[in-house]
Simulated scan of single mutants.
Amino acid sequence: MARLPQIMRRPQQILEAPSPAATAGGGGTVSLSGAGATFPAPLYQRWFSEFNKLNPNIQISYQSVGSGAGVKQFLAKTVDFGATDAPLNDKERASYPKDMGEPLQIPMTGGAVVYAFNLDGVDNLKLSRDAYCGITDGTIKTWNDPKIVKDNPDAKLPSSPITFIHRSDGSGTTFLFTSHIKAACPNWKAGASKSVEWPAGVGAKGNEGVTAQIQQTKGTIGYTEYSYAKENSLKMAAIQNKSGAFIDPSPEAAAKALEGAEVPADFALKVPDPAGKEAYPIVGLTWLLLHGKYSDQAKADALKNFIKWAFQDGSSFAKELGYLPLPNEVTNKAIAALDNVKVAAK
């Protein structure tokens, strides 16, 4: 297993191959299609745009439809690649088409899931574990509940109802969020999955939908990916981590959640409740799903070269948008795993 280094800085990438931008795609036009997670969609769209500027003959289209729908399309072979914030489970692997080789899940970036809120007169909010667990399971119903007031003595918390906003679609963000809630909240009964039976709240589709619902509706709070909240200037709560500290969401605090974590051979790293004293508690990786076999050499090469470029030159865009560039120890192993992508004999 690879162990993530203590600080997720990126020393000079070790790649012996020439720059992917100089070698990708050859002369003909290559069109790639993908679908899946909304969590990394802003970064993926930026990456695809920047990569296309360097490789005008390679067009990559991406549908931000949620991890659940993306995995289904990947398994149905209707897209060239999938994207998910939840590693493939045993049932999904068992239904993978045998003629496509073995699926690969390549970690691309990491990020935080935040509690974003819209409450007039309150700019800073601290939520203890008791508080955010109660909001999520519906047992805390008003903003002036004693469990919220306790840690926000100077805030003018109203007696109005809390409306919790959650995902209505199959979502890797929901998987990351509920994996933490299951670990942190003793009374949580709905489990951890891309789709759960919510005990309370209002559903919205995609990180985009949750973000918009919070932005447009007073008295709401819900979970969304950090970059969506940041880009839309939503207020984000500081939440209590396993050590008892209240942590504001940030890429730096999210990186601390992954420090020292062991990355398994299939890259399916999960850290539902990190122990670090300065770690933000709801953090995960997101993966691209590649087929083990492609019928088109140009498509296989273009996908591999895109991933190498994203690791090597795309990290600056990840940082700019609030995502976590992965350390070289992990990206070099992921690049080596790309050798398992083959072209089917005709």
Results as ranks from 00 to 15, higher is better:
residue 153 P to S: 10
residue 168 S to H: 05
residue 138 G to N: 14
residue 138 G to T: 12
residue 161 P to C: 03
residue 115 Y to P: 05
residue 172 G to C: 03
residue 137 D to V: 03
residue 141 K to H: 09
residue 113 V to P: 04
residue 152 N to Y: 09
residue 128 S to K: 12
residue 119 L to T: 03
residue 159 S to Y: 08
residue 144 N to Q: 05
residue 132 Y to C: 01
residue 179 S to K: 10
residue 174 T to S: 15
residue 131 A to T: 08
residue 170 G to L: 02
residue 158 P to E: 04
residue 128 S to E: 01
residue 121 G to H: 09
residue 150 K to L: 10
residue 121 G to V: 00
residue 130 D to E: 13
residue 130 D to N: 09
residue 150 K to E: 12
residue 134 G to H: 04
residue 129 R to C: 04
residue 146 P to R: 14
residue 116 A to V: 10
residue 124 N to M: 02
residue 151 D to W: 15
residue 138 G to A: 04
residue 119 L to Y: 06
residue 162 I to E: 07
residue 144 N to Y: 02
residue 171 S to I: 00
residue 174 T to A: 10
residue 180 H to N: 13
residue 175 F to D: 05
residue 141 K to P: 00
residue 163 T to E: 13
residue 173 T to P: 13
residue 155 A to V: 01
residue 179 S to T: 07
residue 165 I to G: 09
residue 132 Y to D: 01
residue 180 H to Q: 04
residue 161 P to D: 07
residue 136 T to R: 14
residue 158 P to F: 04
residue 177 F to A: 07
residue 150 K to C: 01
residue 173 T to F: 12
residue 145 D to I: 02
residue 157 L to F: 07
residue 163 T to L: 12
residue 123 D to W: 07
residue 152 N to H: 06
residue 160 S to F: 11
residue 165 I to D: 09
residue 165 I to F: 15
residue 147 K to Y: 05
residue 173 T to E: 14
residue 181 I to Q: 06
residue 131 A to S: 05
residue 141 K to S: 02
residue 122 V to G: 02
residue 144 N to E: 02
residue 146 P to T: 11
residue 145 D to A: 05
residue 167 R to Q: 15
residue 133 C to G: 00
residue 155 A to R: 11
residue 162 I to K: 13
residue 176 L to E: 03
residue 117 F to Q: 02
residue 132 Y to F: 12
residue 163 T to P: 06
residue 123 D to N: 13
residue 162 I to A: 08
residue 124 N to C: 00
residue 176 L to S: 09
residue 113 V to I: 14
residue 150 K to Y: 06
residue 138 G to R: 15
